[in-house]
Structure formats: structure tokens, C-alpha cells
Design a protein around this nucleic acid. Structure first.
Lengths: 224, 224
DNA sequence: TTTTGCGGAATGAACATTCATTCCTTTTGA
DNA sequence: TCAAAAGGAATGAATGTTCATTCCGCAAAA
């Protein structure tokens, strides 16, 4: 970085990278976690910068100093929060895998008719992707990446299992085709992923109408 | 690196090597490609090694000396055939994009009923992917990559257009849903891609039966 | 004061690419 | 027919660059 007047910088310079004064002050007033607790704001800035860059340029295509710059922290600071580049990418992965799971499963209408369950699933997925496009792309891009650690893989598997169960119950209610649930699950999931990627690349405009039409298509693909 | 006299290039698509013409010409006069030669075999070995490694580890994750080792050539030799790592990845991309296009479009039954056209398309795609799994993954992985050059992008667009037209004719025959063709195209294409990727990751077993079942699902997704 | 968190220059490893050299085939000259 | 020279292809150590990670001096907090 070029600026050396950071000591007195009290206002944000584009990126939410406030020097720790304000935050530490808050910590002090609250009276908890005082002392060696490191600033969550800084950690979050790093996670966000990493998410954006990894999703756009991939893991190997992203240089750590670039992550630091984007996060508005020093290059060394990242290593106070994450042991390595791999640890960082895994932290991002787990953070968003959890968020996606939560976004879809929270209060899911498991007792509703299958058709409605499917619609709910589809639009929750679309909603998550629309609100967190980088995160959604990141998760897709790093699915099965060799540098994902065991915890990331476990989380991935768990989400997968829950997704399959959703199809199994639909089959039990004689609403879905009696095919292997992982086949149905993959068809629907990857259809949405493809649609979303194309819309991001500007090849398809993903209006609410199209989204609804695509939902119908996918339902007809899996319905009995 | 814009050689223009490649009329004697006998091998695959891509950037013809600069110093090649005169030599190839001499050989051509003799009628055989024996003996000393800036051999197409070597160029092909490099393309194959690059395909395997790029599809498995990505562009930035693949080191050129590793490509050389895998191809069984010296590191410097690659640069006799390809101007740079980027030129190499583009040559691989164009080679296989063309092959895929050919595999699907060759003698395509354009006059058959839409249902049969769809089936033909699906199984040709599956056949190509089964025979050239690395190539299929490579093409998917590098779709829209920032290091693809204009020629690669043009080829990509061309294939895309032809694929859309296939859906448009289906619509004209009142066999397919009257939705934007790029939407239908994306749904089907990405469903297959997802299925294939999962099968490669060992998550789904893609037997001929499953493939046929998935084809039915996809047809029902797009049929009127 | 001491402790702690931080920034960013410093470091060594790994990378893409180059180039002086070797190797091999063909041509030349007898 | 063969020896030797020519010349282009192949090589891999060398080069300069970029990267992930470390280190250290400084400033704020305790």
C-alpha cells in the first residue's frame, strides 16, 4: 500500500477497514473480551475480500497480498487470523456452506405438499444466490477442490445428504419419479447453477418470470 | 505469434508453430513424415498432457514444467510449439471445442421428429463425454475463463448459437416450451454437465439406464 | 512501563520463460 | 559408399518475476 498516514485515519477508505480504535473502544465499553481478542471486523474484511477474489479468479489465481489489499489490511495480518491460504479458503467455504444450508433449511415446510416444497426450495436457492452471488459462485467453484479440508468435505456431504432426503420424501409421497434421489437432486441443482452462471455471464437474463418458468421446467423433470 | 502460412499443418487446431512451414514443406515433397521432424507427435503429446493437467488442476494450478514432464519433453520444447502458457490453454480449448461440435453436429438428423432429435443430441453428448472425459471437463472448467483469447471466445459463441437454434426449431414444431431458447438450452446442458461431474466425483453412477432416465427427465423439462 | 496487534518490507520457494548447448538427421564432397 | 559438416530441433539449467509466508519495528492499550 502507499498510504502511511494510517495512524490517524478515522474514516473508511472505501473498504470497511477501520483502524482498530473504534472497535477496541467498543470492546472496552462492553467490558467483555477485552485484551487479546482480535477484531472480528478485520477478520470479516479478510473473509469478504477472499470470497470476492477467490470466486472471481479461483484459488490459485488469487495472490494473498491482493487479498490483503482488498481487505484493507497488511499482508501479514491475514496470518494472524488464518494459518495459511488453504485455511482461509476453507474458512470461506465453511462460512458460506453453513449460510446456504441455513437459508434453505430454516423453517422448511417439510409437511407441505411436495409441489410446494419444491417451489420453496427453488426460490430459496434463487434468493440466496441473488443476495450472495459471489458466495454462490464460490461454493460451486470450490466444490470438490483438492485443497478443501476434512471439515469442509464433511459439511459438503451433510448438505448433500439432506438434499437427497428431501427428494426421498417426495418419492415416498409418490410425487417424484422413482429414480435414484442423487440423480434427481443433481439434475435440479445443476440446472439452477447453470442458469445462474449464465445469467452472471450476461448470457441469460434471469428475471423473476424466467426464474419461475425454469422452476416449472425443473419440476416437470422430476415429477412423477 | 501470428503465423499465416499453415497450409501444411496436419495436426490439430491451434497456433501453428512459426518455423514450421519450410521444414514441413520439404518433408511433404519427400512424401513422408519420417526421420527428423518437428513432430506432430510431440505437439500432440504436449496438448494431451496439458489437457489432462489443466482439467484436473486448473490453469493456474498447473506448472509448465509439469506439463513438460507429463508430455515427456523438455520444458523448453513446449515453447517451440506454443508461444506461452495462455497460447497452450487456448490451443487445447479450441481443439476440443471443435471436436465436441463435430461429435454432436456430424450428420445430425435435423429432419427427424423433435423427440428423436433431442435423444440424439443427449446421447451424442454423453458419448463424447464418456470417450473424452478430461476434454469434457476441461471445456466446462474453462468456459468463460479470462485467459481465453478472442478466437476461443468466438468458437464458444458459435457453438452456443447452434445449440440455441436447435431449440428454436423444436419450438417452431410446437414440441418444446415457448420459453427463451437460451433458458431451455442452459437447463439441459447444465443438467448433463452436473450429472457427468458427479459421476466423475464418484457420487453418482452413470449407467446407461440412468443416462436414459436422465434423458427422459430433461426431455420432460423442455417439452411442451 | 509492558503487552498486543498491526503493517509492510523481507525472504525463500516456485513459477514461466529463455538460451547456450547438445543431439540428430540430412547434405555435401570425395 | 562413407566421413564430415551443416543446421535445425530439443533440452534443462539459468533467469527474472511473483508468490505465500515470516519478521520486526511501531503504535495503542493496559
Amino acid at each position: 500500500m502507499t498510504s502511511n498516514s494510517y495512524k490517524f485515519a478515522l474514516t473508511s477508505v472505501g473498504v470497511p477497514c477501520l483502524k482498530r480504535n473504534e472497535h477496541s473502544f467498543l470492546k472496552f465499553k462492553k467490558g467483555f473480551f477485552v485484551g487479546r481478542d482480535e477484531s472480528p471486523a478485520k477478520r470479516d474484511a479478510i473473509l469478504k475480500a477472499a470470497l470476492d477474489l477467490f470466486s472471481e479468479r479461483g484459488f490459485h489465481g488469487t495472490a494473498m497480498p491482493l487479498v490483503a489489499e482488498r481487505a484493507g489490511v497488511g499482508a501479514g495480518t491475514i496470518y494472524r487470523y488464518f494459518a495459511s491460504k488453504e485455511a482461509l479458503v476453507n474458512a470461506v467455504y465453511q462460512q458460506w456452506k453453513l449460510a446456504l444450508r441455513e437459508a434453505i433449511l430454516h423453517d422448511f415446510p417439510f409437511t407441505a405438499p411436495p409441489r410446494e416444497q419444491f417451489r420453496t426450495f427453488w426460490f430459496r436457492l434463487a434468493d440466496f444466490a441473488a443476495k450472495n452471488p459471489e458466495a454462490f459462485l464460490f461454493l460451486e467453484l470450490h466444490h470438490h477442490a483438492p485443497y478443501l479440508d476434512d471439515e469442509s468435505k464433511t459439511m459438503s456431504e451433510r448438505g448433500r445428504g439432506e438434499f437427497h432426503r428431501f427428494f426421498e420424501t417426495g418419492q415416498a409421497m409418490a410425487a417424484l419419479k422413482p429414480l435414484p434421489p442423487e440423480l434427481l437432486a443433481t439434475l435440479v441443482w445443476s440446472a439452477f447453477v447453470g442458469l445462474f452462471k449464465e445469467s452472471r455471464a450476461g448470457q441469460v437474463e434471469l428475471t423473476p418470470e424466467r426464474l419461475a418458468e425454469a422452476e416449472t421446467c425443473c419440476w416437470e423433470a422430476v415429477r412423477l
